[in-house]
Design a protein around this nucleic acid. Sequence first.
DNA 1: CGGCGTTTCTTGACTGCTTCAAGGGAGCAG
DNA 2: CTGCTCCCTTGAAGCAGTCAAGAAACGCCG
Lengths: 158, 158
Amino acid sequence: MPDPAELERDLRTAGLRVTRPRLAVLDAVHVHPHLDTEALIGAARTRLESISHQAVYDVLRVLTDTGLVRRIQPQGSVARYEARVGDNHHHLVCRDCGVIVDVDCATGAAPCLMPSGDAPPDFVVDEAEVIYWGRCRSCATAPAAPSTTARPAERGNP
Amino acid sequence: MPDPAELERDLRTAGLRVTRPRLAVLDAVHVHPHLDTEALIGAARTRLESISHQAVYDVLRVLTDTGLVRRIQPQGSVARYEARVGDNHHHLVCRDCGVIVDVDCATGAAPCLMPSGDAPPDFVVDEAEVIYWGRCRSCATAPAAPSTTARPAERGNP
DNA sequence: CGGCGTTTCTTGACTGCTTCAAGGGAGCAG
DNA sequence: CTGCTCCCTTGAAGCAGTCAAGAAACGCCG
């Protein structure tokens, strides 16, 4: 649960104007990592009594462009957002339920790993994005996939 | 350039019926790795004089489901396909022009790396998908980004 | 070799996520 | 407080991909 004043400071530091929609969305992303845009619209509307669809899309774009939030999009999922930036962490994604879990990066700084040995032709690599695919505890024990289209959500209170 | 008979054998081995659309699409994916669906429709239409939109989507779905082709989708790109499967290789993606280059995996077998040390909670990881982001030779030397929306393509003849 | 059942392709329409565009409203410097 | 600039609202459109019904093709079998 981030301090509103701190969120405001983050916006100013990034050279952005401080508006209620931006504070609401930024707070929502902090509190609920890995939500998709639709869910973030809902989360923002619990903070403000009204905010448009489009405003949330605009805000998310600005926040990602300035690096205040990070956008992730595993195969078969819509765009999701998280506020944990700067550290070079990765994600585990459950193939069945779609839940996303953060994993720390071993080496720390980006790019945490370089293309191994032989192959890097003339590429200047600045980031290695890693997604670990597998199955979470509950989906690994329960044999059949419960949900058809995975609707990932965080562990915790909505 | 794969042998048509070999492609046919691959289809049969996977338990699929051999049809001209499937041979055309599968050949196109072999010859032109990392193409998107629209481009593959075009490539298939150079092999067959007519094939529908929908057929290509269906074929690609079946081929991915059976593991004959692999689907990749870097951030901000539409779905792309490649026929190099089985080896656990990864990709370099240029942030500017969007070109995709294969990189061999150091360790070989999937999952080539496990979530580092501390964090894997109850997850059974079976694959680690790695995308290296950076800039290719020409985009690294040329300062400004030439293309707005990246239109990745392979190096080679179309 | 030819018929039949099942799978697959064609045609056409549609969904859902995301973006474009124009105008009124809000933040912030002076 | 005033004005400039940027941001949010409203409404509509774009695009990749999907759904659905019927025709055509594959391939098993006699």
